[in-house]
Amino acid sequence: MRSLLYAVAVGLIGAALLHIVIILSLPSFTGRDAYTRVQTFGETNRFFPLANSSVDIAPVNDDPAIRTAVCAFSLENGPIRLFAEGDVPFWSLAVYDSASNEVFSMNDRTSVTGALDTLVATPIQLIGIRKAVPPELERAILVEMRGLEGYAVLRTFVPAASYLESATAFLADASCEIFAPG
């Protein structure tokens, strides 16, 4: 009787663990994970604003006080420079790898000048950049990313309707481009 109860308990625990693994891995099998969805918004190395209302299959931003833009990128052809500046009350940036693991995050309070100026690169690319830092990167924050693909999410706060124009301009002018030292 004791071995039967042990077998049933082990079976139930095993079944529970199997179900948890299946549920957590389901997004990667269905193509509905965050990275795959971001890739469908358009070309890489460009910020795309998320809509604040559902329009067909367009991406949706659920918070009416937050405006969001996303950029899928690849480090295969060089590091990516994320840059944005403007008169907004608050902004935040999060960089994710292709498995949607957060690699880096910051906001306007932790930036050097209040503007977004970040360079995302592989460890090998960063070694070359750190040997001779170009003048345009002297105040940039250098972020190391192990993989070659990922995406960035840029958010800005819109506390009142009067901030909407500046928030929209901030996101529209944000750049997510391959860095070429000038």
Rank of each mutant, 00 (worst) to 15 (best):
M106S: 15
D108Q: 14
D108C: 10
D108K: 05
D108R: 10
D108P: 05
D108L: 07
R109E: 11
S111K: 11
S111G: 11
V112Y: 13
T113D: 10
G114C: 04
G114V: 05
G114Y: 10
L116N: 13
L116M: 14
L116P: 06
L116D: 10
L116I: 09
D117H: 13
D117G: 05
T118C: 14
T118Q: 14
T118H: 09
L119D: 03
L119V: 08
L119H: 01
V120E: 00
V120Y: 08
A121I: 01
P123Y: 04
P123S: 02
I124N: 02
I124Y: 04
I127K: 08
I127T: 06
G128W: 00
G128V: 02
G128T: 00
R130P: 02
R130C: 04
R130W: 00
R130G: 00
K131A: 01
K131V: 00
A132V: 07
V133A: 10
P134Y: 03
P134A: 06
E136V: 02
L137E: 07
R139W: 06
R139K: 09
I141N: 13
I141P: 03
L142Q: 09
L142I: 02
L142V: 03
L142S: 04
L142H: 03
V143T: 12
E144P: 04
E144W: 05
E144F: 03
M145T: 06
M145R: 09
M145F: 06
R146C: 01
G147C: 00
G147W: 00
L148D: 07
E149D: 12
E149P: 01
G150W: 07
G150S: 10
G150M: 12
A152M: 09
A152L: 04
A152C: 02
V153Y: 10
L154P: 04
L154I: 04
L154V: 02
L154Y: 08
R155S: 13
R155H: 15
R155N: 15
T156S: 13
F157Q: 09
F157P: 02
F157A: 04
F157Y: 15
F157V: 01
V158A: 13
P159N: 14
P159E: 11
A160P: 03
A160S: 15
A160L: 08
A160C: 11
A160Y: 12
A161H: 14
A161I: 01
S162Y: 09
S162D: 13
S162W: 08
S162T: 14
Y163M: 12
L164W: 07
L164F: 07
L164I: 05
S166D: 11
S166N: 11
T168H: 07
T168C: 07
T168I: 01
A169H: 11
A169N: 10
A169V: 09
F170I: 15
L171R: 08
L171Q: 07
D173S: 13
